[in-house]
Structures are given as structure tokens and as C-alpha cells.
Design a protein around this nucleic acid. Structure first.
Lengths: 205, 205
DNA sequence: CATTATACTGTATATATATTCAGTACGTTT
DNA sequence: AAACGTACTGAATATATATACAGTATAATG
């Protein structure tokens, strides 16, 4: 986020106040009236500057199409969590292109802290009550125990399964659906990386 | 606040979702596109009805001049929701509506507004991904459709089931677990009251 | 049975609104 | 000195948008 000038701050404040007061963003003319400008282009140029610096987003062509990009909506902050699609490809999970959207929720929402929501594809865990498009709250950790629902990566394939350590060499990833088969991972031969574990679930009908 | 029809509720929800998504209210054309109307006047008449009933305010002449009235549920605002225990969702037993605790969560957390969390007992809805101790986000309404997951009360017994209206006299409450049986409610003989419907789910491992 | 509310399609239009273009002016950076 | 960002006025314009008008149809109400 770049530096903001005092006039641009006035415009930004004006937008926020207007939204708080009316429920919808101002037009260029509204801003002019509030701040005493005589030309709508004054507002326009300020808006473009604010957009360029990342303080607001402007929907082209739409009337009142201004939305304020605040800390609540940005990705790193405490109370805002990214939603990641369950991607098979080996791209890093939290890469920007994998973030479908973000969800604002209290950080103490689940019993332990978590890092992101994973959008589930398929029904391999349906008997554990995890359905298609459910959002799993994932805590990034490698400290998992038998019976935990883990997010595992085997050869660039990401999957959600029960974790079962059978021996020093063998880990089983067990689905909760009899139509699917348990994945046996020989740690000497196959590469297994534990992305994290499920600590909660969110479903929106 | 007068009664709202199901179509008007759809329009109201559409407005809220649009605001949550974009940061500003929809135009008549936006609403038409979202809900499949072919004439902007369809949206207009619904908006005027919602305004007349006090659900929204419309600023005359202004584009996107819609604001949702009543709630302090401006985007991002939070509230405490009670968690209510349900004594066995399987074979229904007596309902004890004691508030176990409250959960703080954003008002716009689910796609439509809701009133409380219901803590599920039993596994009668397990094939719908609803497990013991899951928290269902319940919206208090009697406007339910076939296939909705409803919270129903039959003779002081509360249960969570799929809603199926079979005829004018017959409603079936269908579990999502073959170990449980469908409850057939003869409306002429038995008293059925719909407490509300599920609009989301929360699970804490 | 007339009236009213709901729930739409379809067309038309005044105006609200974003956006571009042409200027002026000042300061900072390259 | 040229280039650029800031900070405005003023005018012009394409289009986005609210809104009225003309219909059709169904259900509820008094």
C-alpha cells in the first residue's frame, strides 16, 4: 500500500462516511458536493489515484461502483481467512491464484487457530460429514495424530483423509466412504507431506 | 414489519448478497440477472413492495439507492448468536430450549440471515453431512420448500429433517439415514409447526 | 363481484452518472 | 528541461439507471 496524500485521505474518508450514512457509495458529483469541488473530474482523478494505490476498487461503467479495500478485506490480517480450492496441481496452496475469496470470521471462531479454508471436492469423506463444497478450517501443522483428518500431499496430489500411522514406514490415508480405497503410503518410496489438519468445518447451503 | 412473501425474500436476500459481494447495492437490471427476471419492472415492483413493508429504503432518483433497513448488519458487523441444544434429532424427544452459550460471528456470515445455532443430537441426518454435535445455523421462517432441511416441531418434539410436502394434508419429514424412518405428518390429525430451516452448518472438531 | 396485492413481460424515456477531453497551475523527480 | 504526479475548473457525451406506462395472469379479500 503506497503513500496517501492528505486530499486523497479526505476523499477516502468522504466515501466511507457516505457509505455509513446512506448504505451505498457516492457518485463523483456527491463527492464534489461534500468536499466543495466544482468539477466531477476532481473527484474522478482522486478516485483513479486511490485505485492505483490500492485503497479502493472501481467497477468500470457501474454507477457508484466504488468499494473500499480495507484491512478487513485484505488477505494477511487476523480475522480474514482465504478460501482455497482443492487443487490437484502442485502449486503452492496459499498462492494467490488459488485463493477463491476470503471469509471474515473471528480468530477464536474454532477451538484452535487455523490458517485457511479449504473447499472440498468429491465425497471421499462423506461418512465423516464432509460434503462437496464444504469449507474445512485447516490448521497448518505437521503434528498430526491417528484419527485426525489431514490435508495431505502425495506427489503433487492434495487429498483430505483420516491419518493412520501403521508403522515407522507405513502411513495409511483412509477415506470415510466405502466407495473409495485407503491410500497406503510407503514412506521409503513415496513422498508424503502433511499440509495440515482439519479443526472445523463450515457449510453454506 | 409486515409479512414478506417468498419472492420478496429472494429479492431481499439477493440485495444483501450483492452488497456483501460487491460493496454496493444492485441495480434493477442486476437483480433481474441474478433472479432470472426478464423485465426491470419485475425488480422495481418487488423493491416498491419491500419499501412499503419497511424492509428497505429507496432513495428516489439515485442509482443503486437501496439500503436495507432494521438491522445493524452493515457489512462486517458482528453479533452474538445463541446455541440451542436439541435433544436427539433421531426419534424426537422433548425440546429443551436452553441456551448453552453464544457464538460471536459476523451477521453476513452465511448467505442469508439466521437467528440461532442448533446443536444436533443423533445421526438421523448423517447422509446430509450433519453429524452429532454439529451446529446448524437456523433461520426462523415458515417459508420452506421441498428438499429444505427444516427444524420441525410435532407435538412438542423437535426434529431436524428434509421437508417434503406430499399433498395438502400430508407432509413427510425425511431423514438422511436409512436406519431412521420417514415421519409422515397428517396435518388434519397431527400438529406440525416449522420452527425454521437450516441455512448453514458449523462444526468444531 | 369489485378491489387489491402479487408476479411477471415489454417498451420507452428522462436523467443520473461515469468518463473523456481540453485547459491551468504547482511541485518533485529524472 | 522534460516527464510525471497532484490538484483543480469547465464542458461534452455515451450509457447506465430509475421509473413510468401498457399489458397479462393469478390468488386473496371484503
Amino acid at each position: 500500500m503506497k503513500e496517501i496524500t492528505s486530499q486523497q485521505q479526505r476523499v477516502l474518508d468522504c466515501i466511507q462516511i457516505y457509505i455509513n450514512k446512506t448504505g451505498f457509495p457516492p457518485t463523483r458529483a456527491n463527492i464534489c458536493k461534500e468536499l466543495g469541488f466544482k468539477s466531477p473530474n476532481s473527484a474522478e482523478t482522486h478516485l483513479r489515484a486511490l485505485e492505483k494505490k490500492g485503497f479502493i476498487a472501481i467497477e468500470s461503467g457501474a454507477s457508484r461502483g466504488i468499494s473500499i479495500i480495507n484491512d478487513e478485506n485484505s488477505y494477511g490480517s487476523k480475522d480474514n481467512y482465504p478460501v482455497i480450492g482443492l487443487v490437484a496441481a502442485g502449486s503452492p496452496t496459499l498462492a494467490e491464484e488459488n485463493i477463491e475469496r476470503t471469509i471474515n470470521c473471528p480468530k477464536s471462531f474454532f477451538e484452535s487457530k487455523f490458517d485457511y479454508f479449504l473447499k472440498v471436492k468429491g465425497l471421499s469423506m462423506k461418512d465423516a460429514g464432509i460434503m462437496e463444497d464444504d469449507l474445512i478450517a485447516v490448521k497448518k501443522t505437521t503434528d498430526v495424530r491417528n484419527g485426525d483428518i489431514v490435508i495431505a500431499r502425495i506427489d503433487d496430489e492434495v487429498t483430505v483423509k483420516f491419518f493412520r500411522r501403521k508403522s515407522a514406514k507405513l502411513v495409511e490415508l483412509e477415506p470415510a466412504n466405502e466407495d473409495f480405497e485407503t491410500i497406503k503410503v510407503n514412506l521409503e518410496r513415496d513422498e508424503l507431506s502433511i499440509e495440515g489438519k482439519s479443526i472445523g468445518l463450515l457449510r453454506r447451503n
